[in-house]
Design a protein around this nucleic acid. Structure first.
Lengths: 106, 106
DNA sequence: TTAACATGCAACCTGGGGGTTGCATGAATA
DNA sequence: TATTCATGCAACCCCCAGGTTGCATGTTAA
């Protein structure tokens, strides 16, 4: 289980339709098992499992075992990290533009 | 130039180290040309160009031609879209957890 | 204790992403 | 005008992400 926890991996984990759908699903209905996550999806249970593992590697989700099923849930802190990252980007960009503006005017 | 403007493509465009480095570069020093973006990078100018196109497809950056060089700049609005998306996810998740909590307690 | 159910593991297939090289073309400058 | 410089285009390569199928294992319920 190689932990891929930098920003690029985090965004990459969000950069897939199937995975975003999983995130949505978890957000709407809370933690749930793999088979339940698979129900309603056009894709195999195995595919879902792989996607969950990818997101787990990025720290986006994790699972706890309950009897024969494993229940997956989101890690909102990690989502916030991504959000904060983008916020910094955005601010930095505004600053760069301001500097440029000032430079041009002189 | 197929426009790939949904959330998945947006995050995918951010989900690569080289591309994130480009974003950083643009944020730090403002708009700049391809060769300048390539300078200091370990990869070819062509690779950089491809990455820029990917990000352009996602609406993250765009270019304007100045004589023989094309100057690329970030589109902060798109960054904010991603940020907002994550914010909604985060809130939704908290709500789902609250509902679950209430359900368990009954 | 059997049968149904939820998951894990492994092998396999395919397309496209990330990268390179070589050459062509239009702009700038000496 | 001849030459350098910034970019575009196209072909090519390799690897891995996304997906499937088949079978094995552990858990629950009849």
């Amino acid at each position: 289980m190689p932990a891929r926890r930098n920003s690029a991996h985090l965004f990459a984990a969000l950069g897939d339709q199937t995975r975003l759908r999983l995130v949505r699903r978890l957000c709407d209905d809370g933690p749930m098992s793999i088979t339940r996550l698979t129900a309603g999806s056009r894709v195999t249970r195995q595919a879902i499992t792989k996607h969950l593992r990818v997101m787990e590697g990025a720290g986006l989700v994790c699972s706890t075992r309950h009897g024969r099923e494993s229940v997956w849930h989101l890690d909102a802190r990690r989502v916030d990290e991504a959000r904060t990252y983008l916020e910094r980007i955005s601010r930095q960009w505004d600053a760069a533009l301001a500097r440029l503006q000032k430079f041009v005017e002189e």
